[in-house]
C-alpha cells in the first residue's frame, strides 16, 4: 500500500515535470504557431498534425501546449492568491476572536452557501471576463475554503499556553498571526495547496467551457473542449484531447497530495 502510494507519487511528479517543460518551451517545441490555420477542419491524427486539427483547422498539438500555459498559469496564480487571502483572514479571525471572528465567519458562510460556479458566473458577467478578473474571482471565492481550514487549525493553537504567553507580552496581532501561529499550521498548507489547485484548475476549465473563462484569441484547455465539442457526436476525438490533459493534471496533483500526506503521517509516528 505504502509502496504503491510512493510509486504513484513519483510517476505523477514525472508526468507533471514533463508537461511543465513542454508547456514552458511551447514556442520552441510546438510544430506550428498556435492560431495559424494549417489544415482542414477536424483533420484526423497524422504525421503532419500529430493530434489532428481543430474546428478551424488549427494544429491541436500546438494549441494544447499554448493553452496549457494559460490554464496552468491562471490556476497557479489563483491558488496562490486564494491561499494568501484565506490564510491571512483566517489567522486574523482566530487570533482576534470575539465579534471579529463571528462577523468574518458568518460572511464566509454566506459566500459558501452560494455554489461557486454560479457565483463566479454572476461576478464575471458583471465585471467582464478579463484574465485578471478571472484570477481574482476564483481566488476570492476559493479563499473561503482556505479561511475555514486555517481558522479551525489556528483556533486549536490560540488556546495553548505558548500563545497565551505571547498575548501576555502584548505581541502585535501581526506577530501573533505569522510568528506564533502560522509556522505551526504550515505543514497542512502544503497539502491544502495541492487540493485547492485541483479545485481551481477544474473551476477554470468549467468556466471556460461555459464561455465565461479565458476569452479568444487566448485559449485554455476548457475552451478547447468547448470549441471542439460538437465533433464528438460524429465520432471525432478532438474534444477528448484537452479533456485528457485536464484529467491527467488533476489526477497527478491528487496523487502527489496523497504521497505528501503519507510521508507526513510517517513523520508524525
Amino acid at each position: 500500500m505504502r509502496k504503491l502510494i510512493v510509486l504513484q507519487g513519483v510517476a505523477s511528479v514525472t508526468v507533471l515535470v514533463i508537461l511543465a517543460v513542454l508547456v514552458l518551451l511551447a514556442p520552441y517545441v510546438s510544430p506550428y504557431v498556435w492560431d495559424d490555420v494549417v489544415g482542414g477542419v477536424w483533420d484526423p491524427v497524422s504525421m503532419v498534425n500529430w493530434l489532428g486539427t481543430d474546428n478551424l483547422g488549427r494544429d491541436m498539438y500546438s494549441r494544447l501546449l499554448y493553452a496549457g500555459r494559460v490554464t496552468l498559469f491562471v490556476a497557479l496564480a489563483s491558488t496562490v492568491l486564494s491561499l494568501v487571502i484565506g490564510t491571512t483572514v483566517g489567522l486574523f479571525a482566530a487570533v482576534k476572536g470575539g465579534w471579529v471572528d463571528t462577523v468574518l465567519s458568518r460572511l464566509v458562510d454566506a459566500m459558501m452557501s452560494i455554489p461557486t460556479l454560479i457565483f463566479a458566473l454572476v461576478i464575471l458577467s458583471i465585471l467582464g471576463t478579463s484574465t485578471p478578473v478571472l484570477i481574482a474571482t476564483i481566488a476570492v471565492l476559493d479563499s473561503t475554503r482556505v479561511f475555514r481550514l486555517t481558522r479551525a487549525m489556528a483556533a486549536d493553537i490560540v488556546v495553548l499556553e505558548y500563545f497565551e504567553a505571547a498575548l501576555l507580552r502584548r505581541d502585535s496581532v501581526f506577530r501573533l498571526m505569522f510568528v506564533e501561529v502560522l509556522p505551526n499550521i504550515l505543514s497542512a498548507k502544503k497539502t491544502e495547496f495541492g487540493l485547492r489547485f485541483c479545485n481551481n484548475f477544474l473551476e477554470i476549465a468549467s468556466l471556460s467551457f461555459l464561455g465565461m473563462g479565458i476569452q479568444p484569441p487566448l485559449t485554455d484547455w476548457g475552451s478547447m473542449v468547448r470549441d471542439n465539442a460538437t465533433i464528438i457526436s460524429f465520432g471525432g476525438i478532438a474534444p477528448l484531447i484537452p479533456a485528457t490533459a485536464i484529467a491527467v493534471v488533476t489526477i497527478a496533483v491528487n496523487l502527489i497530495v496523497d504521497w505528501t500526506l503519507e510521508s507526513g503521517s510517517r513523520h508524525a509516528q
Binding site: L160, E161, Y162, E164, A165, L168, E180, P183, N184, L186
Partner: peptide
Amino acid sequence: QMIYQQPDTALNPEQ
C-alpha cells in the same frame, strides 16, 4: 510571569 503546567504546550514547537 507565568510558568505553565504542560511543558509540551507551553513552548512554541516551531521556535
